[in-house]
Write a protein that binds this DNA or RNA. Structure first.
Lengths: 141, 141
DNA sequence: GCTTGAAGCTACAGCGGCTGTAGATCGTAT
DNA sequence: ATACGATCTACAGCCGCTGTAGCTTCAAGC
């Protein structure tokens, strides 16, 4: 039986984060000692490792919730799992496109400035006047 | 003199966002009508456009605050402006690297799965077992 | 058995950057 | 004069944690 701190170390999670996951129902309420401290078994360790790994891959907690639910239904079709992963991939790809546009714009902006004084700074000028931009860099990505 | 809604439309900002910027001191407190409604001039329009454009390029509100402060000091060296932009560029580049690693991992994961049933789903397996990953995709990017 | 210090507990506030709501008031066109 | 959209304030909520304060419990050493 593992204390919360041990679980935290083993999965690279903060103790508060584990309690947060419990609070939002992503982790189950574990057993407790007589004194009221949480004690975890291997199932919880695995579940938390799954969650953390999915988080590292950028899945939202909602998506992870779905994935966990699905993985409790081994006989079901795996299409839904696939769909969630595909969606995540598409989101990542979209963010890549936007970020790349940002990178280019920032580079151009920085490259254009060889002024000394703020008054002549091309960076500020570009920021002031949107027309000077090539791409329409929409969101942050 | 522009009402807040007009300012919002002209800059592609939500009304609440403008009020939020005022609240955190990024936008100045504007004049008011007798009835208490905000009225804006061209200076505020320009300032808000600057803010929104910088946001689109991924600058944080804190960075934007610095940029705005600097642009009020036209005789100063433009080096600090450059530094802020460089930092932003470096952050964007770092995020690109991480996102690209994510993309590859997701693609690999999805490509590996040709199962029908959840029980055999490679996607879930990979999520369960970090060892099956190539890269160490740290943060979300 | 007793002491100590680390680790755990609850409850709540705060981060960034907005967004949405409720319920009242204002401004303007007809 | 009226109607209706726009604006007002104040506050809660979003995501995914993270940090704090002020307690209690656990486990190791004596």
């Amino acid at each position: 039986m593992l204390a919360i701190g041990t679980l935290a170390k083993r999965t690279g999670t903060k103790v508060q984060t584990i309690r947060y996951y419990e609070q939002i129902g992503l982790m189950p309420e574990p057993g407790r000692t007589d004194g009221g401290q949480r004690r975890y078994g291997d199932a919880e360790l695995d579940r938390l490792a799954f969650i953390r790994h999915a988080r590292q891959l950028g899945f939202s907690l909602e998506a992870i919730r779905e994935l966990l639910d699905l993985s409790d239904m081994p006989d079901r079709s795996c299409a839904q799992v696939d769909a969630i992963a595909q969606k995540q991939l598409r989101e990542v790809e979209a963010r890549l496109v936007r970020l790349e546009a940002l990178r280019i714009e920032l580079q151009r902006m920085i490259g254009a400035c060889n002024a000394d004084r703020v008054a002549d700074c091309r960076i500020l000028e570009v920021l002031r006047d949107h027309e000077e931009c090539l791409a329409d860099h929409a969101a942050t990505g």
